[in-house]
Nucleic acid binder design. Structure first.
Lengths: 211, 211, 211, 211
DNA sequence: TATGAATGAGTATTCATTCAT
DNA sequence: TATGAATGAATACTCATTCAT
């Protein structure tokens, strides 16, 4: 007596989700060394079954990323339309990102992205996807910066450069959180401090001019 | 007639250097996946020969790190005794680090360090060495911050937190430089911008307060 | 439809036995030089599969020994409680051992034990096991000797020395059987002859005294 | 200024002897795992030089055996012509062999022979040589046995069988001495005990008959 | 004659992937 | 759909042997 197609469909989806969840855990624990066998064991399914759901290891990895990135960037659009000064909204953005760094899921997601960006063997499609998501975050940030510069709230200068530096800084914070979550939580990186990168300088810092 | 011991010595040193140089290139290109065979190929020697010079893959890696880290941290002490205000000297430090990011060698070194910190299988000794070097950089920075806070040049607040955030930021910049050196050089990250993280705020940024 | 767990269990056991049997043959033929590849070839399985059943070469070897040694020493206890004079029972023991030397399996087992005792790289556990089994054989022999000396059936003298010499002799016979089974079977070493080592001397051998 | 041919000749011979001596030591220490590099190191010569004196590892091994076997069997002939009863001379032979077992050199020699007999890769010539030397020992023994049987000093029975069993016993004693020289020396195997293998039995051992 | 650097073929071991059931 | 046994292609590492000096 065959299962109904609907039941099959449900089973497939559940299994697929389960494999991905296990992969997330295992990749976070073992890094790229993680084995298909590890994932299958974690998911409590057979080794072979994983291959009925994903063509190969790469595919699991790619799907995992596809799922994670949206989580990381969702709600971006809303920031542009929120009330408040550009600076305030930028603060929201930054502090949201920094705050998320304390959370396991977000860290695992970022860990994965790091691996993904390092791996030479990343399929072009995944790489593009990643890139596109990331770009949208940067564009949101850029737009807020431009607006903030107009109001004088944000320091003058090439917005792209500001975006680049800020994103580098956020990236570094994430790596920190990944490497030593304990310490990270102790120092609770304060979004206000990070925002200083955008802060119009007055006078006394002028003596930092390069010679 | 045998080679003179001196000639042999020269050969050994040259080959050793060559292997390390090749390893540097290959590790930077492929990360920890890099194969001894890759290194041997790059060095244009036979696979077996690599083992006459290094006990195993780990040994090559460890030696590489040992060689690279000093380069990255040398001159640290001098900064503490240089003339100039603490802020000026901090600027020197930061701008030195950021400036080095444009250079291939320094980037490869950092790539290696990243791999090293990720790798679970890092021998304790190497890990410690790394850690110690890094600590000395952070301590230098911390001392300059404390001095700068005394003179009012540097923003008030927990120096450890400031150090942590700055180092995260520098780390992020390095990763950026590694990922896309082209773009990195285009935006020439300006040490003055980064120094803003330490800049005493005035008044107008106060509206970034968290709700 | 998956195989039933029982079927899998059967397969695993069969393969395991097959690998061990092949290892037995190959080790006997080639000694410790034997290769995992040799074993896999003999067992007509892939090289990799051997590793699903045994962690490494050492493990195969150890298991083989564990299996073989009991065969060699079983029935020892019963000898102590059998009826008959101590000399008769000793004769049973010796002739049992010598008789077994004509059989392929027993010879291969002994070959293995020899290799095992030679090999420096023998895991302590296996070595101990071997040692313990062997000791129990020797102790049985010793006890029978002591009893036989009490009845005058066995020559006087240090029982330990008698045990040592007899076991050396049996070892030598085994090596002979291994080296040239053909010849061994031709000369059918007679347990009665070997028993002479225990025979109380009368008078005429006294002229063999060392000067 | 070239050396005289005679000087060269002397050097060659000295080196050759040195290599062989080192090989003896190293083989005894490490067994067949011993490396050409080990031998060269022990002989304090370069790795390459060994190959100017011996075609390959096998050749060193074979030569070593060629040298050692005569040492082990020399003086055999003289035994046949010595005064004394056959039994006495047999005793001399056996006790000479057993006595030698306490000496390092003889043990190393035997160790080597064991390896040689095990090794599949022994060249036919070496194997033959070994065999021939060994045969001459056995023949000497056989002759003495036959003589002794004529005088009634030695037990009746197939002389070849007696030889075989005795040689097996001696082989076993040697292995014992090799495995645990300490213990061996403690129990000082007594040639008189071993000679019992040849002792004409009286009456009481008759109950050892196989059923 | 002497040296030791260099080579290359061989061996153990791991893991993604396939396949019979 | 589900299982896990089986495969084979890496990859690290060793060592006898050759060769330039």
């Amino acid at each position: 007596m065959p299962r109904t197609p609907e039941a099959n469909q449900r089973i497939r989806e559940a299994q697929r989700a389960r494999i991905l969840e296990s992969a997330r855990i295992v990749f976070a624990r073992k890094g790229m060394e993680a084995t298909i066998a590890d994932i299958a064991t974690e998911a409590q399914i057979s080794l072979g079954l994983a291959y009925r759901y994903f063509a190969d290891k790469e595919a699991i990895f790619a799907e995992l990323i596809k799922q994670m990135v949206p989580e990381a960037s969702e709600g971006l659009q809303s920031l542009l339309e929120m009330p408040g000064t550009p600076g305030e909204r930028l603060y929201e953005l930054i502090s949201g990102i920094v705050g998320a760094r304390g959370k396991r899921q977000a860290l695992e997601a970022h860990q994965l992205l790091n691996h993904a960006l390092d791996a030479d063997a990343m399929p072009e499609k995944t790489r593009e996807l990643l890139s596109r998501r990331y770009q949208s975050l940067l564009e949101t940030m850029r737009q807020l910066i431009v607006e903030g510069q107009a109001t004088g709230e944000i320091v003058r200068g090439d917005p792209d450069q500001l975006v680049a530096i800020m994103s580098a800084c956020l990236d570094g914070l994430t790596r920190w959180a990944l490497r030593d979550p304990e310490q990270f939580r102790t120092y609770v990186p304060d979004a206000r401090i990070i925002m200083r990168l955008f802060q119009p300088s007055r006078t006394e810092m002028s003596n930092f001019e390069a010679p």
